[in-house]
Simulated scan of single mutants.
Amino acid sequence: MVSLMDDSVVVSPDWLASRLDDPQVRLVDVRDAWEFDGIGHLPGAVNIPFDSYRDESDVDRGTLPGAAAFADLLGEAGIEADDTIVAYDDTHGVFAARFVLTALEYGHDDVRLLDGDYSAWNQSYETTGETPDVESTTYEADPLSPEESPLVGYDAVAAALERDAVLVDTRERDEFEEARLPGAVRFDWREVVDDETRRLKPEAELEALLAEHGITPDREIVLYCNTARRISHTYVVLTALGYEDVHFYEGSLTEWLANDGEVESGPVSTAEDD
Rank of each mutant, 00 (worst) to 15 (best):
V2A: 11
S3P: 05
L4V: 11
V10Y: 01
S12C: 11
L16Y: 08
V25T: 15
R26S: 09
V30Y: 02
D32Y: 06
D37F: 06
A45E: 13
P49N: 07
S52W: 11
D60G: 04
T63K: 01
P65V: 10
G66H: 07
I79M: 03
A96T: 04
R98A: 10
L104F: 07
E105G: 00
D109F: 03
G116P: 06
W121V: 02
E140A: 13
E140D: 15
P150R: 03
A158H: 06
A158R: 12
A159M: 10
A159G: 08
A159V: 08
E162Q: 14
E162V: 15
E162F: 12
R173Q: 15
D174K: 02
E175A: 05
P182G: 11
R186F: 10
D188H: 13
D188Y: 05
W189R: 01
W189L: 09
E191K: 02
T197S: 15
R198N: 05
L209T: 08
L210Y: 04
G214D: 11
P217H: 12
N226S: 13
A228N: 08
T234E: 14
Y235D: 01
V236H: 09
F248Y: 08
G251W: 07
L253E: 14
G261Y: 02
G261R: 07
V263I: 15
E272A: 08
D273I: 10
